[in-house]
Simulated assay, not measured.
Amino acid sequence: MIITSEAIVISSLKYGDSHLIVHLYTEASGLRSYLIRGVLKSKKGRMRASLFQPLTILDIVASHKDKGNLERLREAKIGMPYKTIHTDFIKNSIVFFIAEIIKNSVKEEESNPSLFNYIKTSLTWLDVHHEVANFHVTFTVKLTQYLGFYPDTSTKKTEYFNLMTGNFQDTYESGHTRRGEAIEAFKLFLGTNFDDCNRIKLTRAMRNEILEVMLLYFELHLHGFKKPKSLQVLNEIFK
């Protein structure tokens, strides 16, 4: 089956001397993996390795056999050129973190237009704004809406957050119950959009603590989720 779709690059891996295995999140077919032969040595081919930087938005034409194997990518071109994401060190570090989050949490090989549009819209916002210190926290919190475990905010005024159930409560219940400054700051991100998130003033330590809580939350709700390796770099960037 031939599909034409927008796609977001999640990751790429060198295979052999000249090939790439590329993981794309496609609007038409969800997460797909492609073997692109000879792209690392090709000088005249229609596809270049530079197309497959993390979270690049592409327009693709692909052949899918839907047998769980590597698919064939026939054409790929930039769908939305970035102005700053791949040249700004801070934004590029955020991109690597977000790409790992997506890779470790999104597994479905089926269309999910709302999730695809959320990721695309988020990247568009990141590309054109300068104040981005809280972007990755906001992105991670909002992503849980599309993955099915967004916290229940009906009792948000209570003291404790239960990471296992996703509920706020007024009593300590288990080792996965948290309270304190980080939880109070975390509450501020619930229902907050990207335009407003930088009004939330955080120290680097507090931002890092919120991220640690969120990543544990992901681990508890997503089988096989792994903490991003890029987290340490990201934690050192923002003061």
Rank of each mutant, 00 (worst) to 15 (best):
C197P: 00
E110R: 11
F135S: 02
D127K: 01
S122R: 03
N117K: 12
R179Q: 12
Y172E: 13
T171Y: 11
K187Q: 14
H136V: 08
M164A: 05
L143W: 05
G148E: 06
N208C: 06
K107H: 15
T153F: 15
L188V: 07
C197H: 03
T158M: 11
T192C: 12
E109K: 04
E100K: 11
E181A: 07
G191L: 04
E159R: 04
G166Q: 06
L216K: 10
N208P: 10
E184V: 07
L222Q: 05
F168P: 11
L163V: 09
P151W: 10
E108R: 14
R199N: 08
I102P: 00
P151L: 05
F139A: 01
V132I: 03
F218Y: 15
I98V: 09
N193L: 01
K142P: 01
M214F: 07
I210G: 11
I101V: 15
I102T: 04
E131K: 09
N208A: 05
Y217Q: 11
D195V: 04
P113L: 04
N112M: 02
Y150H: 09
S174T: 15
K120Q: 04
V95W: 04
Y146S: 14
T144M: 10
T203F: 05
K107V: 13
G180H: 02
H136E: 07
S105V: 01
G175M: 07
L222G: 03
A133Q: 13
N104W: 03
I119N: 01
N104V: 01
A182K: 14
L215C: 02
F168M: 08
S174M: 13
S114Q: 10
F194I: 00
V141K: 02
N208V: 01
D127S: 06
T140Y: 03
A133Y: 07
Y150E: 06
Q145N: 10
E209W: 10
L126G: 04
V106G: 05
I94N: 11
P151I: 05
I98E: 02
K107P: 09
R204Q: 08
Y217D: 08
F97M: 15
L215H: 03
K201Q: 06
Y118F: 02
I210L: 06
I98W: 00
W125T: 00
S114L: 07
I183E: 13
F116R: 01
N112K: 04
N162T: 10
S93V: 14
K120T: 00
T165V: 15
Y118T: 00
F135K: 01
Y146T: 08
L202N: 00
S154A: 12
W125F: 06
S111D: 02
L147S: 06
E219F: 05
G191R: 05
E212P: 08
Y217M: 13
S122C: 03
I200P: 00
F149G: 08
M164Y: 08
G166H: 14
E109F: 09
H136D: 05
K107D: 14
D152F: 08
D152T: 14
P113Q: 12
E181V: 11
A205T: 14
